[in-house]
Design a protein around this nucleic acid. Structure first.
Length: 666
DNA sequence: AGCACGCCGACT
DNA sequence: GTCGGCGTGCTC
């Protein structure tokens, strides 16, 4: 009897054997249903073999083939294998990433009427107007004949990167191939789909992201698999979409951390995309105003084609001017310095919009007793509670803990509790008081929680019903507001204190992105950054919109410390209810790691265990061990062996995970 | 990941 | 005496 080796969606690091009943049409890549324990699960056949190591009486039959899905193509299976090996993730769960939601109602999205027509329409497709820079980038990014090549498209906000992706997609689609376009967060950019529809008329576009209902997602997945969808636009999970005629992958905002899946299977969709492009021998286009230092260094070395867009595409939309203004200004009211207030007043007089960016939701990040110094702390996390004034609550942003704001200090009884620092709610209130006639709108996770709230706010902003916007990161991404001419940035200094070596790289990217919201239309933009460190090199580079200078400085620092992209990192993170258990596990893990590293010629360095940046979360004590290697290959070999050791090491009460290329260390 | 089994504390 | 907590191990 033939045996199918099946990837089953469980944490185990191995495959499971099932026998194939006669008459069942099964091959590598078939999606099947099998009994597993007392459950029934979906699995993917990875190969069919003659015999099993297992005694025949323990082997169960494959129950059925999932007819609704096609056989998964080879490149997807190779992708799952890659994710499992490179990121040290369980093989079955990696294969599960390839599957669309199953068990949903039949996924039949839009009809297929338009398909044939669409291809015809695309033949004459030259509706995207490109300037010289964009055209040069487009030509360089698509090698003739088509083959694998990575291009880094570096251009400031508004320089027209999206037009280049779409023009590249149009070329590929005209040749009857499919394009894959990965974006950080699709549901936050309602403009994107319209923009695509306008630029690529008649092209059949489908989206893939987690906010999509299961039925729709399955329908879109199938449209991609059948080759009907000519352009797939999606978030990180779309990197696993089946695309029989793939011709191009574009990754927008390639530096963005939302390409990293943090829960469950850990991977970086940007890097998976590059691997996939190589497998399929197609070009991949990475775009950013502030490329990750990893991509930047590859471009410098000539491994990636380095394509630059130097000016904003619309000639009149100049880059915004950036000014640094003091944070601790004697004329400061509720955190708003006099320069920023004056600038807002000017915008109000001219009927232009202002955006104030504070990357903190809530009223104040801390509640302090003025008499004894007590601070409201989360009972389950090593973190301060955030004051939410509207709900009269103290909330933990790490675990969701919620309690009423106490009437007095629980330690000394003092009634005078002082909210320390500024969040979006406090700023919203202050602006309402300072500018009584102004229409203020707050955009953060709390104000947009309701379904459709974000879209409604978005409409209000574009139709001019808002004078001052207050918001978090949410507002940083890709929105074009024509009358927005002022961006104020508050409270960004705390990132400069961070222990994480990537903090300043991320802060620059965020600030450049927020700054880019100003002056997208015909009106010039102005950015005011409130800071206590105007001499910091980050701000000097921001003022000049000179990412290169900042990137070079960071790279020099990284090189001297052997940090990425010059070295390679992995993190073993562990948590348990007792600190002693975490420490003991990590001590033994580090000792084992050191022994392994020594045996393998010291290409890897294992650092001593330390507490995590958030030392306790939701009642779990957290710690970590960092591994640094000069060679990726050495790190890979080390991790494969180390993980086997780790699996035998601990009591099950210690939960641990390996993170390869961790996005943050600190 | 689930899910069952088993070995210790507090209840009718 | 049992009920049920969670720690451990297994699933082809």
């Amino acid at each position: 009897v033939a045996i199918a080796r099946i990837a089953v969606p469980v944490a185990a690091n191995r495959l499971f054997d099932y026998w194939l009943p006669a008459g069942l049409q099964v091959e590598s890549g078939s999606v099947v249903r099998v009994a597993f324990g007392r459950r029934r699960v979906h699995g993917v056949v990875t190969e069919i073999v003659r015999s099993s190591e297992l005694s025949p009486d323990r082997i169960l039959p494959v129950q059925e083939v999932v007819e609704a899905l096609p056989v998964l193509p080879g490149d997807l299976r190779a992708l799952a294998q890659f994710v499992a090996a490179y990121y040290q993730q369980p093989i079955g769960q990696c294969f599960a990433q390839l599957l669309p939601p199953l068990g949903a109602k039949r996924g039949r999205s839009e009809g297929r009427r338009a398909d044939v027509v669409a291809v015809e329409a695309v033949k004459g497709l030259e509706v995207i107007e490109l300037n010289t820079d964009q055209r040069r980038a487009l030509d360089a990014a698509l090698p003739r004949p088509p083959s694998f090549a990575v291009s880094l498209l570096q251009g400031v906000t508004g320089s027209g990167k999206t037009e280049v992706y779409l023009a590249a997609a149009a070329r590929v689609i005209r040749e009857d191939r499919q394009a894959l376009f990965l974006v950080p967060e699709i549901h936050l950019t309602p403009q994107l789909e319209q923009r695509i529809a306008a630029a690529l008329p008649g092209v059949r576009v489908v989206t893939l992201h987690s906010a999509l209902g299961a039925g729709k997602r399955l329908g879109h997945w199938l449209a991609a698999a059948r080759g009907e969808a000519q352009l797939v636009v999606g978030t990180r999970l779309a990197v696993f979409a089946p695309l029989p005629r793939l011709g191009l992958i574009a990754v927008d905002e390639e530096h963005d951390t939302s390409f990293r899946q943090q829960d469950g299977v850990r991977y970086n969709a940007r890097d998976v995309a590059i691997y996939r492009a190589r497998l399929r021998d197609v070009p991949v286009l990475l775009g950013s105003a502030t490329p990750s230092l990893e991509s930047y260094a590859q471009a410098q070395r000539g491994r990636y084609r380095w394509l630059r867009l130097s000016q904003r595409a619309k000639a009149r939309a100049a880059l915004p001017s950036v000014q640094l203004v003091p944070n601790r200004d004697p004329g400061s009211l509720e955190g708003l310095g006099s320069s920023l207030r004056a600038a807002i007043a000017e915008r109000l007089a001219r009927r232009e919009q202002s955006l104030l960016f504070v990357n903190r939701r809530g009223f104040a990040p801390s509640l302090l007793c003025v008499a004894c110094g007590w601070k409201a702390m989360c009972p389950r996390c090593a973190a301060r509670l955030v004051v939410h004034r509207e709900a009269a609550a103290l909330r933990c942003h790490h675990c969701g803990h919620n309690e009423r704001i106490p009437a007095g200090c629980p330690d000394c009884g003092n009634r005078d509790l002082f909210p320390l620092g500024f969040g979006t709610q406090r700023l919203e209130r202050a602006l309402g008081q300072l500018f009584p006639g102004a229409r203020v709108m707050r955009v953060d996770r709390d104000s947009t929680r309701r379904r459709g709230a974000f879209a409604a706010m978005f409409r209000a902003i574009t139709s001019g019903d808002v004078d001052i916007l207050v918001g978090t990161q949410m507002l940083a991404k890709g929105h074009d507001f024509a009358r927005l001419t002022l961006v104020g940035i508050l409270g960004c200094d705390n990132a400069l204190y961070s222990a994480d070596f990537r903090a300043t790289e991320r802060l620059f990217a965020l600030l450049e992105q927020v700054a880019g919201r100003a002056g997208r239309g015909a009106l010039p933009g102005e950015v005011l950054v409130q800071t206590d460190f105007p001499e910091h090199p980050l701000f000097a580079a921001l003022v000049d919109h000179d990412y290169d200078r900042f990137a070079e400085a960071l790279l020099a620092e990284r090189r001297s410390l052997g940090l990425p992209p010059f070295g390679h990192l992995a993190l073993l993170a562990a948590e348990a209810t007792s600190r002693a258990a975490v420490n003991s596990f990590l001590e033994r893990a580090a000792a084992r790691g050191n022994a392994l590293a020594t045996a393998h010629g010291k290409h890897c360095e294992v650092f001593p265990p330390v507490a995590a940046a958030l030392a306790r979360r939701a009642g779990m004590e957290r710690g970590q061990v960092l591994v640094q290697a000069s060679e990726r290959r050495a790190l890979q070999n080390f991790l494969a062996r180390w993980r086997e050791d780790l699996e035998r090491l601990g009591p099950r009460t210690v939960r641990w995970s390996l993170e390869v290329d961790p996005p943050a260390v600190g």
